[in-house]
Amino acid sequence: MNNENQPTTSQAAIRAEGLTKTYGSGESTVYALRGVDLAVPHGEMVVLLGPSGSGKSTLLNILGGLDSPTEGRVFFDKDELTAFDDRHLTQFRREYVGFVFQFYNLIPSLTARENVALVTEIAHNPMTPEHALELVGLGKRMDHFPAQLSGGEQQRVAIARAIAKQPRVLLCDEPTGALDSKTGIVVLEAIARVNRELGTTTMVITHNAAIANMADRILSMADGQIQNIEQNAHPCAPAELTW
């Protein structure tokens, strides 16, 4: 593994040490992660590349406090996530983490604005739902229900919902996986803008290598391990991406 580009631990927003995740036991043990070490500095845009089954979603879920590793430790700034119980993990997600998923997971019975408000109501220092929706370019469609929005618009609502609490980290799992490339780029632009303007540490999972070009840092995963870490000195704007 190439460790030269690893930032020093003191700068890291997220740090993982020796993460291992297994399912099953005995001969049928399946390794999803095999000793992953990782440090993501504050404010960076990281793209996690890898084929399906490489363990990237498992890693993201553990970093976001949705799942716990079989072995190893995760630190969020100075707090050890892996020492948290379920209540603390919920609290952690509530305050610090924004999630974006492939299938949006919006609440169909709430409008765009209300979907965002769902989060801002319980957060400590949120921006207004309107501001969050302006940031993703949906200022004019705030009172629409998910059923009245296109896939790209729904995903942008999901991003607005994720960032409205002003999270310290934004985790996106295949955010463009269900979208065509044109719509996907609009969504990526929203993510890039949030990263740039709010300085939110951002991790994007994708199996689409083209997207990696917008990252500050590119992690490649295979077989539950990080195979390569690449620093990208000149990230390009999402509009320049093609696939």
Binding site: R87, T90, R94, F99, N105, L106, I107, P108, I122, K165
Partner: peptide, 12 residues
């Protein structure tokens, strides 16, 4: 699915 999403968003 809806309820799980809410849990992920940090609802207890």
């Amino acid at each position: 699915r809806e309820l799980a999403s809410l849990r992920v968003l940090g609802l207890t």
